[in-house]
Simulated scan of single mutants.
Amino acid sequence: MDAGHYLVRLWQRWHSTHALVAIPLMLIAAITLADVRTPGSVHLGPLLVAAPAITTAFAGPRLTGLIGALALGAQTFLAARVGGVATSDHIAQLAGLAALSVFAVLVCYVRDRHKEQLAQVRSVSEAAQRALLRPLPERLGPLHIASSYLAAEKEAHIGGDLYAVARTGERTRVIIGDVRGKGLSAVGEAAMLLGAFQEAAHQHAALHVLADALDRSVHRYLTQFPEADEEAQEHFITALLLEIPDHSPVARMTVCGHPTPLLIRHGTVTGIASPHTAPPLGTWELGPDTPRTAHAFSFLAGDTLLLYTDGVMEARDPTRTFYPLEERVAHCAKNSPTALVYHVQQDLLAHAHGALCDDAALLAIQRSPTAPLGGLHLGDLVHGVGRQVRTHEEHQQTV
């Protein structure tokens, strides 16, 4: 948060607090005036205890103590008018008001301390999220990128969803994933996978080979200390790997148990179905029975890909209806990646009434409309993509 935003929030807080302080002040004045005008047999002074009690709802210990002192002064004034302050009844009233005011100040002090501690925890959480999920660049080669992360826990800023990009030569590689489970173990597994991706993305030429390397890394991590986690064998990470060359209108993806992306082209939204979906990462012991492959599809200048995690599709409204992602994306299909992600994020929160059942991550990638793609015609493009897919499948069968 920059200095300007901090000052604005500080001013708003100060303004709202000092506007609300008029309530206990008016209450003290009204009770005092009413007590003065009523017959001597009617004593309204004990009602002054409401002033410091109300102040604790919006003010700190100092302001609450000041309101308590003013109420005590008003009580003393009223007692002096009828019988004097030294009477046992008035002494009891003053003592009770003083005790309640001190208690109100203590409540404000403890509450503010807890707020400071919570603010520190949030600060650490935000720092951890920035370290784990580093902010993605808005531009990377010919690509425009926008992302969003919504944690299911209201007070949390981090969870088991993940995304990252890596620039390798004249291509961009992307990963988006979802760790099974919650808590610190999920955060640890997400951090491990992101680190492994940033390193392995530069070492393996083929996308499916990169996926195999990540699978082995996750498997080693989950089985390194089996005695520390009895459920380690049940942990896994769904992931989708994407590779986008700078100068070719073709993108490739390897799906490891993860939802496939949506392709937005000329305002039309279509799902990209992968003919081969491999098991999630961390299931390396399954061996060659389920080989991973790279599926090629056209990704033209001006196209946008929307990647997401399960938390987006599984968000429900009060009637238990799932969020219709593809239908809602169609309403903002012509937006920029930043506007698209923001629209889906706000619409998702509105659909779920702010109560997500799982973490939700969104990642929009648009190829610049002016990006040079080697001058291929659309017919050549479709034929080339089909040829790449068939060649790759034949290679897999040979292996």
Rank of each mutant, 00 (worst) to 15 (best):
98 A>D: 10
321 T>D: 13
108 C>G: 05
334 K>V: 11
132 L>G: 04
117 Q>K: 11
221 Y>L: 07
232 A>I: 00
376 L>K: 06
308 Y>T: 04
346 Q>S: 13
245 P>K: 09
4 G>Q: 14
52 P>Y: 04
283 T>A: 08
222 L>G: 04
119 A>V: 05
263 L>D: 08
220 R>K: 11
15 H>E: 12
131 A>C: 05
2 D>P: 08
192 M>P: 00
375 G>N: 07
212 D>Y: 01
134 R>V: 15
85 V>M: 11
340 L>K: 04
179 V>Q: 00
310 D>A: 02
204 H>V: 03
306 L>V: 12
68 G>C: 06
78 L>F: 01
223 T>D: 05
237 I>M: 00
89 D>S: 13
225 F>I: 12
325 L>C: 07
142 P>T: 09
56 T>A: 11
283 T>N: 12
198 Q>C: 06
398 T>M: 15
141 G>T: 13
296 A>F: 11
314 E>Q: 14
315 A>T: 07
270 T>S: 13
36 V>C: 06
170 E>P: 02
341 V>Q: 01
103 F>M: 10
176 I>E: 06
1 M>P: 11
369 P>M: 06
184 L>R: 06
223 T>G: 03
335 N>S: 13
261 P>D: 09
166 A>E: 15
171 R>T: 10
181 G>D: 03
332 C>Y: 10
62 R>T: 14
311 G>W: 00
280 P>Q: 02
3 A>V: 14
65 G>P: 05
118 L>N: 10
234 E>C: 02
141 G>E: 12
192 M>W: 08
60 G>W: 01
293 T>N: 09
143 L>E: 07
247 H>M: 10
264 I>R: 00
253 M>W: 03
395 H>R: 12
100 L>D: 02
93 Q>E: 14
68 G>Q: 04
195 G>N: 10
217 S>P: 00
333 A>Y: 00
348 L>M: 08
57 A>Q: 15
12 Q>R: 13
287 G>C: 05
295 H>Y: 15
156 A>V: 01
18 H>D: 03
124 V>W: 01
69 A>W: 10
346 Q>F: 08
389 V>H: 12
25 L>W: 02
82 V>L: 10
210 L>Q: 06
66 L>K: 00
61 P>Q: 08
4 G>L: 12
